[in-house]
Design a protein around this nucleic acid. Structure first.
Lengths: 238, 238
DNA sequence: CGTAATCTTGAGTCCAATCAACCAATGTGG
DNA sequence: CCACATTGGTTGATTGGACTCAAGATTACG
């Protein structure tokens, strides 16, 4: 009811497809329970069939594939407003990866039947959710290309360009933004070692392109950085 | 009506979710037009919003991201029975990649409104299609992990394990099967150079694990190959 | 303050890319 | 039918990017 801090869920969906006032209210009614989770907690463990959908309201999380030897690959980064497990098929498949909080996070649980009912009733909302799913897939494809084709330096540049676009939410790319990840976590995202991540970041800074320090990114020369990375934000627009 | 060569579309969907006889007939009615396309032709070009869905009936295709400098990354391999562009959101987004025939292919065009109507009417069919989409996503995640975490030798082994599972269609992994790709194409799949692909394949053969020759794969020691690759077929089961 | 993360730096190694031929199979046209 | 071009595969030598190992500097935190 309190309209003050617009739900990140609403604002993210709204960016993808126009919502009516009724749609917006329906979103607010979706939530069953909201909780805080500490960094490192699983929103959804690997191997379990997720019975509920959830929405990330605050903080950062990731989809993460862990190996027995301690190595891990981060498959996706999730930011406030992202829906987790909203594709219906998810209910009947064992999760092939975990969803884990990278910071302290606020999570809203949504009973799957309620989501289904709401989406059936509100076409605009359903369309926005489909767009969200499609964009998450597009990001996944972009990451695959990034890992497959770009060397470390450009790979990092590409990733930072993407995050600048994503956190700005379509307002043309943030030039300074919070990215609450350690260099180790960055390594898990990019398929590099922490040591190499460190060197690559230093090089980006010394070349005057991007500055990552203490979880804050500053895009010092977006144009040259885009060019270096071969970045094109097309896949992030609705 | 002719039951003889079961439509690959039906059999692939059936593997994911049980279909009624009515469902099966509905699938047959979906198709608008069937055509042959030559190797190298685009089923869907990058940058175009695909107006129709299509099904691959015969031959192999891929999702492919091309760069100006000639490099390319293959994002997914498509085999008979795969649906292309069936996620509804696809209609309103510019494609961030091309879908291209890797061999001569037979393609069935499906008008999007007709698909929508059919899925609305046949819940079992809709469920199977959702499963197909979910599995394609799971494969994409597995590829990301493969590129991010495994060195070339194990990466190739993992890929071949996956393909053995996929072509066998759940019957326990083919030990000999056709994989109509050149070593260059394999390089585009795995983010390696053709030269290195060649060396890796030779090593797999000389170690008695897998033999790839002339578009035919022979899994000589599946157990050791799975172990080497850290392969687990969980993500490929419905 | 002391302990633990995280970040930083350096030296050495190795995997995979690059560069450059060469071979085999296929196909084309004179 | 044979010269020739083309494509895909094979091999070797060399280079370089990223990993490994190891130690030190910083920062965060109880």
């Amino acid at each position: 009811m309190s309209e003050s801090p617009a739900s990140p869920l609403v604002s993210k969906l709204e960016r993808l497809s126009p919502l009516t006032e009724t749609d917006r209210r329906a979103v607010a009614d979706l939530v069953d329970d909201e909780i805080w989770l500490a960094e490192g907690q699983n929103l959804c463990a690997e191997g379990r069939a997720p019975d509920a959908v959830c929405a990330l309201l605050a903080g950062w999380a990731c989809r993460c594939k862990d190996f027995r030897d301690g190595r891990r690959q981060i498959i996706a980064l999730l930011t406030p407003g992202d829906l987790i497990g909203c594709d219906e098929a998810g209910a009947s498949r064992k999760a092939d990866h975990a969803v884990r909080a990278l910071t302290r996070v606020r999570v809203a649980w949504i009973p799957r039947p309620r989501l289904r009912a709401t989406l059936a009733e509100h076409r605009g909302l359903a369309s926005a959710v489909r767009m969200a799913v499609a964009m998450e897939e597009a990001i996944l494809r972009a990451w695959l290309v990034n890992l497959g084709q770009r060397p470390a330096y450009q790979r990092m540049a590409f990733f930072l360009c993407e995050m600048a676009e994503r956190v700005s939410g379509g307002t043309g790319g943030a030039e300074r933004f919070a990215l609450p990840l350690t260099q180790q976590t960055l390594a898990c995202v990019l398929g590099l070692t922490p040591v190499h991540v460190n060197r690559v970041l230093q090089r980006l800074r010394s070349e005057g392109l991007v500055d990552f320090h203490n979880g804050m990114v500053t895009m010092r020369d977006p144009v040259r950085t885009w060019a270096l990375a071969g970045f094109d934000n097309e896949y992030l627009v609705a």
